[in-house]
């Protein structure tokens, strides 16, 4: 059960700066490498973090890139 925050976010998005799809795409590789390294990419790229939260397609792409980088890092660590 949820309090509806997710639906509110889907309806209204956020008033925070938003990098847009092209702006996100430009730095997704840097963003994901920071994330996989255990750092907080939202601190370095807040407008990209806001965009990922607001754009369903870019959110999926972000998840996919994280999964891809992690899969290779896991293989390298094994």
């Amino acid at each position: 059960m949820t309090n509806g925050d997710d639906l509110i976010r889907r309806l209204f998005g956020a008033s925070a700066p938003d990098a847009g799809c092209d702006g996100g795409m430009e730095v997704f590789d840097l963003y994901v490498e920071l994330e996989v390294a255990g750092q907080d990419p939202a601190t370095r790229y807040p407008a990209v973090a806001n965009h990922i939260a607001a754009c369903p397609d870019c959110r999926e792409d972000h998840e996919a890139l994280v999964a891809l980088v992690r899969s290779v890092d896991d293989l390298a660590d094994a």
Binding site: M25, F28, D29, L30, V32, E33, D57, E60, D61, A64, L65, L68, V69, V72
Partner: peptide, 19 residues
């Protein structure tokens, strides 16, 4: 070279395949 080339290249593959 700010990220690994492989990560940079993957983002384009992910973009195209997801779409």
């Amino acid at each position: 070279g700010a990220s690994r080339f492989t990560t940079w290249a993957w983002k384009f593959a992910v973009y195209q395949m997801s779409a």
